[in-house]
Computed example of a mutant assay.
Amino acid sequence: MATLKDVAKLASVDVSTVSRALNNTSYVHPDTKKKIYDAVEKLSYKPNLLAKGLRQGKRHTIGVVVPSINISIFGEIVQGIEIEARKLGYEVMICNTKDDPDSEEECLNRLRNGLVDGIIIASTGQNARLIKDIKGSGIEVVQVVRNQDKSISSVVADYYTCGYEATKYLVKKQCTNIGFIKGASDIIPYKERFRGYQKAIKQCGLKEHVVELVASNGNYFNDGYDGTMKLLEKTPDLDAIISVIDIQGLGVIRALKKKKKIIPNDVRVISLTGHSIGAMLETSMTSMEIPSKQMGEQATKMIVESIEADIENKPGQRHIVFVASLVERETT
């Protein structure tokens, strides 16, 4: 691998001149700069960004750890993070974990040993000690979507209200057998949405119809499909299904069509985590819309503020909660 000395030797200049030219720290004659850049290109020289970052005290890079960016609100959250980070002069490194704790651990260790000043994470909740250790080492951490650790700042939505309001809405639509496809109970948003559903069902004097499926390898579409089949097997006269996320809702719609159920005449469908794709479907999906891009922007502002603050002026814990809004479409 080429070094700074190799570049200097090929360009016939001092190492200090190469450094000044590449970092634009002081004037270097244009002809000399050209020789240096030609040498850099010829040698395929890549600067030691880690050493440079350590010298400057900042790497201006944020790590982002999310389950997936494929047809989910996490994709929109990452967009918000990237847009805001760019405005603030930061780069972003993205890790997809598929909600696998081992993959998450690997990503976290790679980021902590790499070029990041902070990490924005939607955690599985299984690496709490590691995340605390990373934060204790001086790398800032902000949780997004999932507030798994109350001692670390977070940007989330009001998931309990999502589950509660969606269920009450379906009851107003004269639904009496409302099915719920439940996500992993150890992940806060899934747990809170289910609590909201339970509260509304109890208040309305109805019976719960619940199936719990945990997506394998992040295949939430299959969870929606399989969950719907199981719900219909137990309750053939089901008249509504609540899915926790849109991609799961797509599986619900596919299963209902397979069973010759007409949406919304036979069964109404609502997602508790709206994604922009929901409005584009052949049968557009009613959902509780979460302002995901704004959540990403907010998380980025918070982490950059913490990164750039002096040790004596570090902001305290902050827990920001965004409110979802019901968007009625064809599935109800």
Rank of each mutant, 00 (worst) to 15 (best):
I247G: 00
I263W: 03
V252S: 03
Q294Y: 08
K260V: 09
C204V: 03
G251M: 06
C204Q: 15
E297N: 06
E233Y: 08
D239V: 06
K257F: 14
D226G: 03
F221N: 11
T286K: 06
L250M: 15
L250I: 13
K230T: 09
T235E: 11
A255Q: 05
I247T: 14
I270F: 11
T283F: 02
L231A: 02
S216D: 14
M280T: 05
K257Y: 11
I270R: 03
S216L: 06
L272Q: 09
N217A: 14
V252Q: 02
K260Q: 15
L256W: 06
I201E: 06
E233H: 05
I247A: 12
P236H: 08
L250D: 11
A215Y: 04
H209E: 05
E233W: 00
D237F: 10
E297W: 05
K230E: 07
L272T: 08
M285F: 08
Q248F: 10
P236G: 01
T273K: 09
K261Y: 06
Q248R: 06
L256Y: 09
V244I: 15
G296N: 13
C204D: 12
C204R: 04
T300M: 04
E282M: 00
I247F: 12
A255I: 09
Q298F: 00
L238T: 12
M229F: 10
Y220W: 13
S292V: 01
A215E: 02
T228L: 09
I241L: 10
G249T: 03
V210C: 11
S287V: 02
I277L: 12
I245F: 00
I201C: 06
P291S: 01
M295H: 04
L281W: 09
I262G: 00
D246R: 11
G251R: 05
I242R: 14
A240Y: 03
R254I: 05
M295I: 07
K258T: 15
N219H: 07
K258W: 05
D239P: 14
V252Y: 06
C204N: 15
I277E: 08
Y225V: 11
L232Y: 02
D266H: 10
K259Q: 12
S284W: 08
N217L: 10
K257M: 13
V267K: 10
L281P: 02
G278V: 00
S292P: 07
V210D: 08
M288A: 10
E297V: 09
K293W: 03
D237P: 10
G249L: 08
P291I: 01
F221I: 08
S271Y: 04
K260P: 00
L213I: 14
E233T: 13
